[in-house]
Amino acid sequence: MLMTIVLIAILCISVAIAGLIYRVIKGPTTPDRIVALDAIGINLVAIIALVSIALDTNAYLEVILLLGILAFIGTVAFSKYLEKGVIIENERDR
């Protein structure tokens, strides 16, 4: 019973990731693609959680937090590049 629900949830999130991949490919502007990539990262977190339920292990729980942190840092880096044209400033003008 639980396994069926987990499989259905994995299928639903896979469909959501497919829609987001369509937005990454089609997206007219760069911010569309960045938001779609960020959402793909968060959906991957959900898939990892569901797979760790399906495999009945807690060895993947670190990966969930790790992927959340990496998605955040990546999105911040992309956004800063779009806003300022440089990712790491040498000296900030105050």
Partner: peptide, 28 residues
């Protein structure tokens, strides 16, 4: 005893410093 170790921990610490570099600047 669990997944992890020096490599992943080091990369994650570097990620924290990179986040600091993103929010502030190199000199700070």
């Amino acid at each position: 005893y669990t997944p992890g170790g020096g490599f992943v921990g080091g990369l994650l610490t570097a990620g924290a410093i990179i986040l600091l570099l993103l929010a502030f600047d190199m000199k700070t």
